[in-house]
Amino acid sequence: MKKIFLTAALVIALSLTSNAQIQTPQASPHAVIEQTVGLTTVKIDYSRPSARGRAVYGELVPFGRIWRTGANMNTVITFGDDVKINGKDIKAGKYALYTQPKADSWDVILYNDINNWGTPEKWDETKEVVRATVKPEFVSRHVETLTIGMNALENDFGFLEIAWEKTMVALKIEVPTKATALKSIEEAMSGPTQGAYFAAAQYYYQSNADLNKALTWINLSIEKTEKGQDAPFYILRQKALIQAKLGDKAGAVETAKLSLAGAQKANNQDYIKMNQDSIKEWSKK
């Protein structure tokens, strides 16, 4: 019996051991930094190897080879807005960050395939979004762990800095702060947007508030439609609902017909059915 108890205890112990999760620190810890440059968000997601007494450039990272610029999966840089690098327009989005270190210059590369472990098995030059050559700088202090970030920030630009060991490279990234700010100012000075008027009218309708004010706001929303464009069918639908609730069934039917035409053009089956049903209901005498 004692032998049976010992065996059972051993099985339980082994089971607990096999189910336990072992936690150890990563050799190259994961890091995510997010920096606002002007009005643009730049995010960098990477793993950070340390030198640990090793010579880095020319040995651990050979000169002339494309380097993942980090460890593990791709280092990924994300731009919240369109930016400009080396005179080239770069669309907002995510890019893998690679470099090609050399003794007297570096190539910094943005690559539009971010799903690689390290460098791609086969490098595809057509996937290079931009390749910019920069001069390496000597850093007086020893940078033990690879550090990537956005520094030397101004309203219209910042520098992507990559520092490790005693070397740093910096790439200028221009952001559309002026254009974004001017657009924001113009929109604010011109009053509420089409969406703001629509949201206000919709809330007043749904909460049984002042329906005449709701009608005024929905009309102002319609007036905000760009010249040469049809008013959005969902906004017209809201106007028809307000008119019907105010007792103007004839006006509601005419507006619903416009909404129906827009929904048919957009092939939105939900709004097609809702308008057809309402037209039928409101047309009854």
Rank of each mutant, 00 (worst) to 15 (best):
Y98M: 00
H142L: 15
A20T: 14
R48D: 01
K285S: 12
E161Y: 06
N19T: 14
A231L: 11
I77L: 07
T145H: 04
D210V: 09
V32T: 11
L110N: 00
P62S: 08
G53Q: 07
A266N: 11
S18P: 02
L60V: 06
N212G: 08
P232Q: 10
S283N: 03
L215C: 01
T7Y: 04
T225R: 07
K213I: 11
Q100P: 06
W123K: 06
E165A: 01
I85S: 01
W123D: 04
L60F: 08
Q100T: 02
A261D: 11
F5R: 14
E174T: 09
R68P: 02
K84I: 11
I4G: 03
T126W: 00
V83G: 00
T147W: 03
W117D: 04
S15W: 11
Y46C: 01
A252R: 00
N86V: 07
I22F: 12
K239Q: 06
L160N: 04
E186I: 15
K122R: 14
K280Y: 05
I4H: 13
L241E: 02
I185W: 13
H142K: 12
Y111S: 05
A252P: 02
E254G: 09
L14V: 06
N72M: 13
G195I: 10
F63L: 12
Q194M: 15
G70E: 07
K166F: 10
G251I: 03
A51C: 04
A51H: 06
K88M: 09
E281D: 11
Q26T: 15
T99E: 02
V76M: 03
H30Y: 08
I148Q: 02
T24H: 12
T167S: 08
E281P: 06
I272C: 02
A196N: 13
D81C: 10
A181Y: 13
N19M: 15
K227I: 15
A20W: 09
K227P: 12
K172I: 01
E59G: 03
D113Y: 00
G58M: 12
R131K: 15
G87A: 09
W106N: 00
A103W: 13
R52K: 13
I242R: 00
Q238H: 11
T119V: 10
N72G: 06
L16H: 12
L16R: 15
K2W: 15
L258M: 13
F79Y: 03
I218N: 05
K257E: 10
F157W: 03
A51I: 07
P29Q: 01
R237P: 06
K43A: 06
E165M: 08
E281N: 12
P176N: 04
L6C: 08
D270V: 12
G158Q: 09
I44M: 05
Y46P: 04
S207P: 02
T216P: 01
K273F: 11
L236K: 09
P176H: 14
M73P: 13
L10S: 06
S221Q: 05
T99D: 02
D89C: 09
T180I: 13
S28G: 11
D124W: 03
L160Y: 00
R65P: 04
S221K: 08
V130M: 13
A209L: 11
E154P: 09
K273T: 14
A96F: 06
I218L: 04
D156K: 14
A20N: 14
Q269N: 10
M274N: 04
T24G: 13
N112E: 11
A152L: 10
P136H: 12
Y204F: 12
P120S: 05
